[in-house]
Nucleic acid binder design. Structure first.
Lengths: 134, 134
DNA sequence: GATTGACCTTCCAACCGCTGGAACGTCTAG
DNA sequence: CTAGACGTTCCAGCGGTTGGAAGGTCAATC
């Protein structure tokens, strides 16, 4: 199987596959006589793993660790769980920050008439500093 | 006032001030005879504006537009509101994505015993694909 | 007057996770 | 033989920031 096929089966673009390989995330694919990469089911499986982990917001570095644990059939599940919990906390923090931002924006948008006149509480608040720096 | 002072008063690092100026976001500060930047209250005010807008998650580009509207005392508040609403929607979308991720992670973390044994529903799900690609 | 140290300047590089493009090689079909 | 659909490598850019190097300028102190 060549890269286009692996890309199709995994949903990861050929470009990204090469990138993942170059940074050492993906186990390097074999090479045919022509220098073309040759992929097997295992590679595709890893690619799918990476794609799902990415879609859950894991950083590449963490995915490297997750893949290591995945490959190691003797890993303690504790390690995986710790990784997942840490990430969960990080995402929660980010989400809470978003929540706060949305609340402030809602207040500002509601306060602004949004007509042809220049009076604008949004700009006022951005300008005068009554919006607490988050 | 020189850059360190402007940085202190605005809470924006000197480095970032120069960067904002370089990309044309901040009105360029005047220059003294020695080539040093000279800042006045107006610059500091703009810096604070930028900082607050950034803390609300506005992209630099949007802040450029916001600053333009801020400087234009004849702007229609509608334009500001539209900008703010658009941003609010974008942040909401991001937040919802986070919410989904957190839910999936919670489920996975709860399912994983987190002990010394290798069985791990987290890896299983990342590997087998029962986690729907988000 | 020389040195010290705190400031200022510019430019270049790295971070992260991609994406696009250029320039080139290789295979297959018509 | 040529077209075009693949493959390869490498280099550059996005956004927003931070860091560092290499050098200029100022104050105070010795």
């Amino acid at each position: 199987m060549r890269i286009a096929n692996a890309a199709r089966l995994s949903g990861v673009s050929a470009k990204l596959i090469r990138y993942y390989e170059s940074i050492g995330l993906l186990s390097p694919a074999g090479r045919g006589a022509n220098g073309y990469r040759v992929f097997d089911e295992r590679n595709v499986h890893e690619l799918r793993f990476i794609k799902r982990a990415r879609s859950l917001g894991f950083a590449i570095k963490q995915i490297g660790e997750l893949l290591g644990l995945w490959r190691d059939t003797k890993r303690p599940s504790r390690k995986v769980r710790v990784l997942a919990e840490r990430h969960q906390k990080a995402v929660t923090t980010r989400m809470e920050a978003h929540r706060t931002i949305i609340d402030v924006l809602s207040r500002l948008v509601d306060a602004c008439k949004g007509d042809d006149r220049p009076d604008c509480p949004i700009l006022d608040e951005l300008g005068t500093g009554s919006t607490r720096t988050l």
